[in-house]
Structures are given as structure tokens and as C-alpha cells.
Design a protein around this nucleic acid. Structure first.
Lengths: 144, 144
DNA sequence: CGGTATCCTGAAGGATACTG
DNA sequence: CAGTATCCTTCAGGATACCG
């Protein structure tokens, strides 16, 4: 984590970043923004994530109060995660983050040229409603 | 960096995060929001940062086009850094980040570490909306 | 299915010395 | 003063195996 919580002192920006910072937190929040999802569903929608990382970040967010964990408590475990009421206060933040990302994604990925602006066609970057519509949920097993 | 640029695929949130993520980027942007500052000035305003980290993140931001570097080119080096025009498009993002941070700072800080804190001096968190207007932070630098 | 417990690696971050 | 070059430490993240 780039901005550890314990070191966050004065800067409010870092304070917020420390909460949503993490390799997958942004993505998780992004997917969850569409509505509650269960663990496997989430995992399948994020091909490159591992069980450990999913649970880890999920737990972090739950711990921060950003998302809620709904456990059915049945024999075949069925857990749903959703943005909590508190987490919804992050909406403006995530919205701004998402908006800027949509607009400047290509620019940032191509070449940091402070010359391009207003060149991004309005593209729906909303999290897909159906998590199952993603491609093969086969985790890539890269050999050493 | 939690979210490396190379790995950012679809999530716009991560795309934005990859740009402002870094131990000190948030703080640097926050300070710079008040207006241009020179290197030493910046470093003095951020006690815990090292030369290397300052320059490193500064360069990252310059490279991303977020901030501009103004080199006087004099014998005793005099370099100023400031939010670039392009970087100003981040204002809504930084504003939201800052706003949420100011509001939920204490809450977030007591989650992981239930440490009693009586004194919480509210920092003059200047909104990055006006980069170059406000210029009166409690800095202790003495511009020679 | 959902979640843990280990072990390992890499890269971000930090300390220091040096240069123009 | 601004910036660079090394070296070192830390720890977030990833791979696997296993449990309830």
C-alpha cells in the first residue's frame, strides 16, 4: 500500500487514498458499485485476482466500513458483498476517479503528453451489470 | 505503487489511481494546490520526505503531465513546480478526495488503531479548485 | 463455496553519498 | 539548490495447499 494508514498525518488526500488504495480495491469498488455480488461472482469478474487478494481487500474494505458483508450462513457458504451506507459517501470520490479515468485513460497509457484534451469519446465505463458475462474465469497460471 | 500503469486494464478508477498513487503524490499535489513551490520549499513543507522520494514523485507527476517544472537555469538552481493545465483537470478528483478525507479522517484513523486523540487541529485543506489563488499556508520556509 | 495459513518475490520506498 | 547513483529494507501482492 502506497499510503499506509498509520503514517497518514495531515493530508486529507492521503487519508482517503489510504482507504481505497490497493491493487484491487478500485476494481472491487467499481464492480460493487453496480450492486451486491457474491464472492465467487466477484472473483470470476476479475480474472487476474487471486482468492487471497480478493478476500484480503474485501476484508479491508469491510473493516473500513466501506462495504458490508452478508453471510447467509448456510451449509454451502453464500456470501454477498455490497457498498455500505457509509461507503456510499465515497460515491463522489469514486465518481470523480472514474470520470477522470474514463477521459484520460488512453492519454495516460499512451504517452504522458500534456497536449491532448477533449479527445475522449464518451464511453460507458460503468461496471458490467452481469458478472457472468465476462470471459473465461480461468485464472492465469504463469509458470516460473 | 499499488496500481501499476501497465496492469491497468479496464477499470477507470484504477487508471486514475495509478496516476496519483504513491506514498507522497497526494501530499505533493495537495501542497502544490496552493500554488507553485520550489523544490527545497516543498521538501521543507513535508518533513518526512527524502530528497530522493520528492524528486522521484515530482518527476513521475511531471512525466504524467500533471505538474509543470519551471527551471530558471541559473547557477544556483532555482526550480519551481506547479500544477499544469492538464493537471488541473484532476481538480474534481483531488477535491473529492480531499473533501472526503477531511470529513472522515478521524473515523478512518480509529478503525485500525483505536487510539484516543483529543486534539485534532483541522488543517486548512485548500481545495485544488483554485491552483494559484490561495497562497498562505502555515509554511515555515524563508524564500531568500 | 468461502476463507485461512504459509511461503516467496518484487517493487516501492527509504538512507546516504556524491555531483553539477 | 536541484538532482542522481547505490544499496538496503519493508511489505503488499501473488502462488498454493488446506480447512469448515
Amino acid at each position: 500500500m502506497a499510503v499506509s494508514k498509520k503514517e497518514v498525518g495531515e493530508c486529507p488526500i492521503d487519508a482517503t487514498l489510504s482507504v481505497i488504495d490497493g491493487r484491487w480495491k478500485g476494481t472491487i469498488l467499481w464492480r460493487l458499485a453496480d450492486g451486491p455480488m457474491r464472492t465467487a461472482e466477484l472473483r470470476r469478474s476479475i480474472p487476474d485476482i487471486t482468492e487471497r487478494m480478493l478476500i484480503r481487500h474485501l476484508h479491508d474494505l469491510v473493516d473500513a466500513g466501506i462495504i458490508d458483508r452478508h453471510d447467509a450462513g448456510t451449509v454451502p457458504p453464500c456470501v454477498h458483498y455490497s457498498i455500505s451506507e457509509y461507503g456510499k459517501t465515497l460515491a463522489p470520490v469514486l465518481g470523480a476517479l472514474c470520470e477522470w479515468g474514463r477521459t484520460h485513460m488512453e492519454i495516460q497509457k499512451r504517452k504522458p503528453q500534456p497536449r491532448a484534451r477533449a479527445a475522449a469519446p464518451t464511453r460507458p465505463a460503468s461496471p458490467p451489470s452481469s458478472a457472468g458475462t465476462t470471459r473465461s474465469p480461468r485464472r492465469k497460471s504463469s509458470p516460473a
